[in-house]
Design a protein around this nucleic acid. Structure first.
Length: 464
RNA sequence: GGCGCCAUAGCCAAGCGGUAAGGCAGAGGUCUGCAAAACCUUCAUCCCCGGUUCGAUUCCGGGUGGCGCCUCCA
């Protein structure tokens, strides 16, 4: 599989450190609010990568953290008149609710920064010992950017150019404007932990280094996140981690593009965002997943309700195809056509994998899936051999499963009343009482159920 | 100022040297009591100008127009 590596700015063959295994870390949410649709992109994209790698037989260790202590957490907790701990607990729960609905498989581990304070302190201590970090009189600890030769290698930034634009807040005892905080001395009313430098709390960047390395080891395969984390967050992570260990940190750096609103980046600070929770009021979140996967992950994509509706329509086509395959009429014995179709199934699978192997080209893979849907629709329009139908269904489920699509069981459990009405309509049709039949169909529609007359009799379908 | 990305039909989006996948929407048709679904047909020479090449949407140069990072941010 080829993966675009931000570090080298080109696609590279994915070669795991340990054959057959992949270790990957993705920067997770700061749990101070519901996450928005832009935050959802990396969750969905890297979940899809994880699913695909597992599909291809890799044993994947996938770690995504929760940042549950930082400036935003503290500010929000004060606003809400609650504690940082309670705030974090609450929004971690909310995260899972939305992520589950988006079809995101639970990570192998979801470490929280506050549960890794010791590892953070150990890492900072090492950096101080190696003189890559220094302690200020006030009890802050800063990383010395100029002490690390490779600084800027990920983002392509030149250290001297950065110097010009760098900002120093008054009261900071930095030796160099580029230096960043590893440990922040306690301020009144803020959560704090004991450390060799007095009470305080970790800086943001060091959290991810400590959590990733303590779970995945000093060097691991893939580090992922949004494009806006390339600088400074990931650059800083590399500096800290490699300065401390003397080893390469991550082999591949993957960054997803933004979700835009009217071609402008969606962000919490800009205020032009939609939370996933809000979207869930109007749409099945599977449509959001579909929407995300309809674009290659590195490209920017605009968000709008219309686009989610388009995605929902496409999803419905896939859903219908699955239903038709599931209810396909079975012929006695196999035919040559069955054989031929069986053989063509492999081509679909190959093309699907080729697309995914090309830096997770889900848009292309989806195209293959739609072509499979059409071929299958045609194939099952007349009785076919059991083996061929089974294989078609298996492949269809397999490929939609890799993308995490069609996992919501929305056609289950119709109310008895609707089922009775459908039966009554069928009776009316038998006696050519089409007026009555159409009335019942209209009533069912008002109740939220569409009626489709298929070769196997009438079927109900829940309208979305 | 430094670093970088993008420009393909009404909308979304693949392709990236040999004359454009797929989806949504639209039009016509088959099927259907009528629908729905499905299937068939139909709907683009790829922002502009140069260059390289037998041949460029695809490579190179120059424009034009969007956007991002350099400050918390997926």
């Amino acid at each position: 599989m080829q993966i675009y590596n931000t570090m080298t700015r080109k696609k590279e063959e994915l070669v795991p450190i340990v054959p057959g295994q992949i270790s990957m870390y993705a920067c997770g949410p700061t749990v101070y609010n519901y996450f928005h649709i832009g935050n959802a992109r990396p969750f969905i994209v890297f979940d899809t990568l994880r699913r695909y790698l597992e599909y291809r037989g890799y044993q994947v260790r996938f770690v995504q953290n929760f940042t549950d202590i930082d400036d935003k957490m503290i500010r929000r907790a004060n606003e809400e008149d609650t504690t940082v701990k309670e705030l974090g607990e609450r929004f971690i729960k909310e995260y899972y609710q939305d992520a589950d609905a988006l079809g995101v498989v639970r990570a192998t581990a979801n470490p929280r920064a506050t549960e890794h304070i010791q590892e953070i302190i150990d890492l900072v201590s090492t950096l101080v010992e190696k003189e890559h970090a220094y302690v200020t009189p006030g009890g802050d600890v800063y990383f010395s950017v100029r002490s690390f030769d490779g600084y800027g290698k990920l983002s392509g930034q030149n250290i001297d150019d950065l110097e010009n634009g760098a900002r120093v807040d008054p009261g900071e005892d930095k030796r160099d404007p580029l230096d960043f905080a590893l440990w922040k001395a306690e301020k009144p009313g803020e959560p704090s932990w004991d450390s060799p430098w007095g009470k305080g709390r970790p800086g943001w960047h060091i959290e991810c280094s400590a959590m990733s390395m303590s779970i995945l080891g000093q060097t691991f395969d893939i580090h992922a996140g949004g494009q806006d984390l390339v600088f400074p967050h990931h650059e800083n992570e590399i500096a800290q981690s490699e300065a401390a260990t003397g080893k390469p940190f991550a082999h591949y750096w993957m960054h997803n593009g933004y979700i835009n609103i009217d071609n402008q980046k969606m962000s919490k600070s800009a205020g032009n965002f939609f939370t996933v929770r809000d979207i869930a009021k109007e749409f099945d979140l599977e449509a959001v997943r579909m929407f995300m996967l309809s674009v290659q992950y590195r490209n920017p994509v605009n968000f709008s309700r219309e686009l989610i509706q388009q995605a929902e329509s496409g999803l419905e086509r896939l859903r219908t195809a699955r239903g038709r395959i599931k209810d396909a009429p079975i012929a006695r014995g196999d035919s040559d056509e069955d054989e031929a179709f069986l053989a063509s199934l492999n081509d679909f699978k190959t093309r699907f994998c080729n697309a995914m192997d090309d830096d997770l080209n889900t848009a292309d893979a989806l195209g293959v899936l739609f072509e499979l849907a059409r071929a299958a629709n045609t194939f099952v329009s007349q009785p076919r051999g059991q083996a061929a139908v089974d294989a078609t269904r298996a492949l269809f489920d397999e490929l939609t499963g890799v993308l995490g699509l069609l996992c919501h069981k929305k056609e289950e459990a119709f109310p008895q009343k609707a089922i009775d009405m459908l039966g009554e309509r069928q009776k009316a049709r038998k006696t050519k009482n089409f007026k009555r039949a159409d009335e019942l169909r209209d009533t069912l529609k008002d109740m939220g159920y569409a009626v489709e007359d298929t070769a196997n009799g009438p079927k109900l379908k829940k309208l979305s």
